[in-house]
C-alpha cells in the first residue's frame, strides 16, 4: 500500500528519485533518497515514531517543520534527530525512542 501522491492535477507527477533502503526499529523499508525520514515512514504506513519517555504514549509528526520535536528519533546512534527535516539516506539505521528506564522525579504540585 502506498500513500504517495504520484499524480497531482496542478503539481504534476512526482519526480523520479533514487530509492534507498533503511531500517526503522530493525525492520527494512524503502524510501526516496533525500526526502524527510518522516515522509518516507508515512509513505510506508508508519505513523508512530516514538513513545513518550515517561508515560509511553505513542507520538507521530505534529508540526512537520522542526518546531515541535515530537518526531524525534535516533539516527545511526544519534539521539533527538527530527525526522521531519532530516533527509533520508541509503542504509540509515533509525530507531524509535521509548520510555526511559528511570523516570525523572515528578516535580508537579501534587507531590509537594
Amino acid at each position: 500500500m502506498t500513500q504517495r501522491i504520484v499524480d497531482h492535477p496542478i503539481l504534476g507527477s512526482i519526480e523520479e528519485k533514487e530509492q534507498v533502503s533503511f531500517t526503522f526499529n530493525e525492520k527494512e523499508y524503502y524510501g526516496m533518497n533525500g526526502e524527510p525520514i518522516a515522509a518516507a515512514l508515512l509513505a510506508n504506513g508508519v505513523r508512530t515514531l516514538r513513545h513518550h519517555e515517561e508515560k509511553a504514549t505513542p507520538r507521530g509528526i505534529y508540526c512537520n517543520i522542526g518546531h515541535c520535536f515530537e518526531c524525534r528519533v535516533t539516527v545511526d546512534g544519534k539521539q533527538g534527530v527530527r525526522s521531519c527535516l532530516t533527509p533520508l539516506q541509503e542504509g540509515m539505521v533509525i530507531e524509535s525512542g521509548g520510555t526511559l528506564p528511570t523516570p525523572v522525579k515528578d516535580w508537579s504540585a501534587k507531590n509537594e
Partner: peptide
C-alpha cells in the same frame, strides 16, 4: 504541554 504531558486540569 505535549513534551512534559502537563494537563489542562493541572
Amino acid at each position: 504541554c505535549r513534551c512534559e504531558e502537563v494537563t489542562y486540569k493541572e
